[in-house]
Amino acid sequence: MSLATLLVLADGRLPAGGHAHSGGLEAQVSAGRVRDLDDVAAFLRGKLATSGLVAAAFAAAACRRPGRWAELDGGLDARTPSPALRKASRAQGRALLRAGRAMWALPPIGREPHQPTALGVLAHAAGLGPEEAAVAAAHGTTTGAASAAVRLLALDPYAVHALLARLAPACDRIAGEAARHADDAVNDLPAAGAPLLDIGAEHHATWEVRLFAS
């Protein structure tokens, strides 16, 4: 396993469409639920424990057995009740696939897989293991929304990165838990939900004016 390869895959500058998504934060900022750094910290912890855990587990499972991608994609559909979030996940999966194809030789996994499925398949193609795929997924869950928080709330970027550093052990823990499920049947993979993220995403998709795609 190459640590530097993992850093390439998890780098926020990877051209995989992430900058246009707020991970649900824009909807919560607009609703007045997230206003300052403490709110962002609570938002990220909640996200990590729910959609972050699911994303990490599915990335780990896809990395273990890339040939299962279609089944895993179905499992993610079942765990994503909001059509807007499904669309956002598939749009980011498609973008990640585009970047992945430029970097490694990927097996066919459809045109628009869910983002965690694509991430796991990329990690496999890059020679990484399920735990690394899970860490990349958990890390991406927090960094994407944190970067959006800097832009949406004009927060001090140092304070936001201090928050990310505090969350790093939690990312590792979640990733470790997720990776333990890498061999589970799809129906047994984690299914933690975050109803406010689902509701927020559905509202967000109807706005006429929005800065982020999701």
């Binding site: 995989a16 469409g17 498609r94 585009r98």
Partner: peptide, 21 residues
């Protein structure tokens, strides 16, 4: 129409994926 997450230059230069899609 493509959303750019407050970064119009990123969407046309550094991460062109949404525009390519």
């Amino acid at each position: 129409a493509v959303e750019t997450g407050c970064c119009p230059h990123t969407a046309i230069r550094d991460d062109i994926s949404a525009n390519l899609d």
